[in-house]
Each structure stands twice: as structure tokens, then as C-alpha cells.
Design a protein around this nucleic acid. Structure first.
Lengths: 108, 108
DNA sequence: TGTCATATCTTCGACAATGACGAATATATC
DNA sequence: GATATATTCGTCATTGTCGAAGATATGACA
């Protein structure tokens, strides 16, 4: 069970790490849009979130209803230890391949 | 047609960049195995190579038969300008998301 | 000198995993 | 109830992965 991560899975995992407590569907999507300059539908985000959960790479818990104009309760996500390892492995693979080629591939 | 790259596509592209003149199915596979510590079948490599070609991210040309113990002719690959751009975009997205989180995600 | 065995490489065919949406559904507040 | 906020569903496209089949050089040898 090698459990490799797809590109979007990596982005979502990173967004969660970056958002800390405030990581849930809508904010994850926003973070990816603004940071990675990549727009995707909420459906895509949730699908990925659900799959990461199924693989044990993230854990979730429902938040309490917030006073801000009602609406359904938020489902917050955090990265698990396994998710952290998987992400590090993925990123290391890419970095290792990229290191030492042309300067333009290096981390700026 | 946003043309995002999958994770394996990124690795294959990087392997080609790294191999220079000597990039073809077998060597690409070896490079990924030894560098990225990721083993995959030749079939997987060729499938990816073919798809990248179809998208115009790599170009190919057949090499002359080499004297070394016969065998079919090699199909050499090089990255195109479009491929280079796509790869840079992909890597930038990940890097931008990764930057500034916990120190453990940073480029070592 | 033909043709066969074998080493090298690439192509095929099939199916699993990921990516991506839009529409449907749930649930707080006012 | 109306509406804003969030998540789940159903579906299809793209990417990832193989194993097996096909192609083609060379070397051996009858």
C-alpha cells in the first residue's frame, strides 16, 4: 500500500496545514484559489477531502453552529500523522528529482 | 484547457530534463526509481510519455540502432517549451502553498 | 547466407484511482 | 417559511498502473 498522493490531494493537504483551525471546505477552496492561483469547484474540494479522510490522511469533526447568519455546520479537517508522512514523501520525491537540474527549476 | 499535470507526469518530465540526451523509456524509469525512490512498470512510464506527447509537453525522435546487443530502436524524448511552462506552473503552485508553514515542509 | 534465438524497447488493452462539476440536500438564523 | 451557508451525490473525464503482446536489432550456426 504505497499510497501516493495526487497533485490536488497535495494542495488540499497543504491548504489544511496552512489554515490550521479554520480548515473546512470553503476556506480550503479559497486558500488554493488565492495562493496556488487555481480555481476549482467546491464539489472537487469535498470529493478530495472525503477521499483523504477515507485513506486516513485527514480527520474531521463538526464545529458548533456559528452565529454568522446561520447555515449548516462546518466540518473541520486536520492532517493526521499518516497524512503528514504521505505529504512529506510526495514532496520529497519531487524535490529530489528537481534538485540540481537547470537553475530555473530550483526553489527561488 | 487548463492542462494541469498529474504527479507522475511531473516526475517523468523532471526525469527527462535530468537525463538530457539519454532520455527514453527505460532510463526514465530508472531515474525515477533511483532518485524518487518510486518503482513503477515500464508500461506506466510509456503511457505517461505518450500522453505528454499528445499534449505537446514533450517531443520525440527515434535514435539510430546502437551496437550494444541489438534490440529495438530507442525513442528519445525532450521537453518542449510548453512542457517546461506547465511543469514550472505546477511546481510553483505546490511551492507557494508549502512556503511558510511549519519548518518541516520547507525546502531543506 | 538464411533463419532462429535472444536481448532490448515500445505498444496495446483493460481497469483502478484521482480530478472535476453541477445539482441536490441539509441546517442554521431571521 | 425564506434564505444564506455548507456538505453530499451522481456522473463523467483524466491520470495512474500493469501485464502481455508486438517490433526489431544483433549474434550464432546449420
Amino acid at each position: 500500500m504505497p499510497a501516493n498522493l495526487g497533485e490536488l490531494e497535495q494542495l488540499v493537504l497543504l491548504a489544511i496545514a496552512r489554515l490550521g483551525d479554520d480548515a473546512y471546505g470553503v476556506t480550503v477552496r479559497k486558500e488554493i484559489a488565492s495562493r496556488a492561483k487555481r480555481s476549482l469547484s467546491l464539489g472537487s474540494v469535498y470529493t478530495t477531502l472525503t477521499r483523504l479522510d477515507a485513506k486516513g490522511f485527514v480527520a474531521s469533526h463538526l464545529g458548533e453552529p456559528t452565529p454568522e447568519r446561520g447555515g449548516r455546520r462546518k466540518k473541520h479537517f486536520v492532517i493526521t500523522a499518516a497524512g503528514r508522512r504521505a505529504l512529506q514523501r510526495s514532496m520529497l520525491a519531487i524535490r529530489t528529482m528537481a534538485r540540481g537540474i537547470d537553475a530555473s527549476w530550483e526553489t527561488p
